[in-house]
Write a protein that binds this DNA or RNA. Sequence first.
DNA 1: CTGGGGCCCTGTGTGC
DNA 2: TGCACACAGGGCCCCA
Length: 296
Amino acid sequence: MPELPEVETVRRGLQPVLEGARLVRVEARRPDLRFPFPARFSERLTGKTITALGRRAKYLTMQLDGGPVLICHLGMSGSFRIEAADGNETPGTFHHERSKSSTHDHVVFDVETAAGARSRVIFNDPRRFGFMLFAEGVPDTHPMLTGLGVEPTGNALDGALLASLLKGRRSPLKAALLDQRLIAGLGNIYVSEALWRAGLSPLREAGTIAKAGKKASEQAERLAEAIRSVIADAIAAGGSSLRDYVQTDGSLGYFQHSFAVYDREGEPCPKPGCGGHIERIVQSGRSTFYCRTCQR
DNA sequence: CTGGGGCCCTGTGTGC
DNA sequence: TGCACACAGGGCCCCA
């Protein structure tokens, strides 16, 4: 479900509860998610203190004092929620379809802070496309993370870098931006949104915005800026809440109200003066939303 | 190497 | 109301 902004929102929600806390009990309620849980999953985590909760692309990384790094991926439908240690909901917490949720509660982490406060963090994932793995030592050395490209946060992704990444690529721009080896963390929603902000067609051959020349470099700069801004805006909004997605405290991100094109087939293009309409097409088996009038 | 398609899994919405 | 089908935010794997 979640793209980079949603994973970052989850990380920020979990951080106050997990960072510096000790895992007093870990329970995997089934043998596998997308992949089998690592051998001795619970045993290797129990008793360890979480020194840092990080994120790389769409992966959460949990650093453990004197232990492995736990790498978590939320897949399409994974979410975390925080409860009081006794399983009662914390005051003010809200969950949709409480009973249905618990049938897909696959992992339970019971944690205790140095001051002795306990809480419970639960991983729920109906489709089970999520997974949890161990990295020994530095998480970036895990095979799942080694090939990942540049983060679209911060200022690292500029026009020149983007142009070098897209140079010579024959695939459609949409596919290139979804390729985690180039830019890590973009997914189906934010690619459509970034391309609209940049005024570029998802069907364009990726390499054509990287050719030498003033126009191409302007387009690469515009696209890099669009990617950085849409990701930053979405993180600031707490991510997007579609379907049953909620943050760790049960509240809703609100960036979906800011979508220009995603899931807006047939609506007028929001660009002032454009006059076009949003279309839905399918690329590599997945929906793309764009305006053919202002995205060329 | 690259790009494209199938597949993993469950839930929800739509149209007949 | 029932049922079939399309579709859903991801990424691995295999094939050409």
